[in-house]
Design a protein around this nucleic acid. Sequence first.
RNA 1: GUGGCCGUAGCUCAGUUGGCAGAGCAUCUCGCUGUGGCCGAGAGGGUCGAGGGUUCAAGCCCCUCCGGCCACCCCA
Length: 447
Amino acid sequence: MTEDQEEISAGGIIQTPKGVHDILPVDHEYHTFIKKVVRHRLRQAGFRRISTPIFEFTELFQRGIGADTDIVSKEMYTFQDKKGRSLTLKPESTAGVCRAYIQNGMANLPQPVQLYYIEPHFRYDRPQKGRYRQFCHFGFEIIGESDAALDSQTIYLANLINKDLGIADLFTIQLNSIGTPQSRKEYAKVLTDFYFDKERSLCEQCKARLKTNPMRLLDCKEESCGILAQIAPKMADYLDEESKVFHADLKEYLDELGIKYVENPNLVRGLDYYTKTVFEFWDSAEGAQNAIGGGGRYDGLVELLGGGPTPAVGYAAGIERIIANMKREKIRVPHKDVIHIFVAQLGKEAKKKCLSLIADLREAGVKTMGALGKDSIKTHLRLADKFGAPYTIIMGLTEVREKVGIIRDMKVGTQKTVPYEKIVPEVIKLIGKENLDKYSAGELLYG
RNA sequence: GUGGCCGUAGCUCAGUUGGCAGAGCAUCUCGCUGUGGCCGAGAGGGUCGAGGGUUCAAGCCCCUCCGGCCACCCCA
């Protein structure tokens, strides 16, 4: 097969590349609903929305996420622009949000700065259900203040959103503290020393991890590695005093909020920038470690990216995974993609009359469809039925001549003739004022 | 990146030891020229994921690739 053909699998028909897909109208019902919940809950809590660019300089992610992490070392979509600069499609948003915080001088805003985002992200990974090369994350960040109460708020909000989505009970909150960078460095050294003469018993991957990120050895699933992890020195014993107090405070606040969590001393997280608090929402099913969301504190990131010392905490979750879970639980979401009325017409004069009638109905907030390209009453009624319209307006030459219209109740099959100018008010009465789709963007302000 | 299962119409799937590519649903048309659903008749829609090989003959056997799913890895 030639290179050209590799990306095109079916005789000239171009398909989507591996791991990406269309979001069709039925899936947008979920996306829209989830975004609505996220926006609502975060707006209530004083967060404001931010969008960072889809691509950034590669260095942002290398520095921010960590060059040795899986994300950076093997999962990024990196390319060069025409001037040879290395750019990367964003694999996550926290680094970009911190860059934006610095670049836009947000340190001069009242602290902490609370931001949220709903954005597409990209990772070159082997696809599976709920795991795609382009995926949508929502997330939020509290930047500029350090207090365990903020961490508790972050976890609370994440859990609250899950509750609104009907999936909170499916997930267990895994919680850990990985300490300050200093204490982590010390602990990493202790671990490295512990494993020094045991390297032969480790799996190939762990041998490599030992040099890059020794804490990763703790959650390896290989049997021999697992046994060693059991007797390895514990992070908790090497936590600095500050982190210990911070973690104890956080647990106190979570208890106060009535949030259940599981302490997981082996929870590490794949991104380098975390400090102290780390947490993930894990599938409660036995043995499952699939996460729909995770986050933690990253007090060093802003400084690492060239800003001043700025503590921060945040959370992010995958929308496709949330949808997969909602579907598995047979949770359906309300949506407004239903029409109120179908306008059926016969003959050119009627069609002309219907054009303004359709416009008037829509202006009044009645969701209206017509089949302007077809010319048979039978076809029109059949379409009205297929679209599930509760009412159909029928206009023919007779009605145009008599300046009336027929309103047909599709469920009962009865119909009545009303004067043309009474059609809109009559329809509104039938649909119910409260069900109208009135669009208002709010008053514009000038000057 | 490693291993396994899978790929036939828009959807769900039959297709026998290799022998003319099928069904149900959906779509469109007609029966019914201005009245939907039900019913009946008909039509369109496929290079059987792609390419190559074996064979008189391949949806079926062999190889490669593409794609989906699952387990790793990792994460959201």
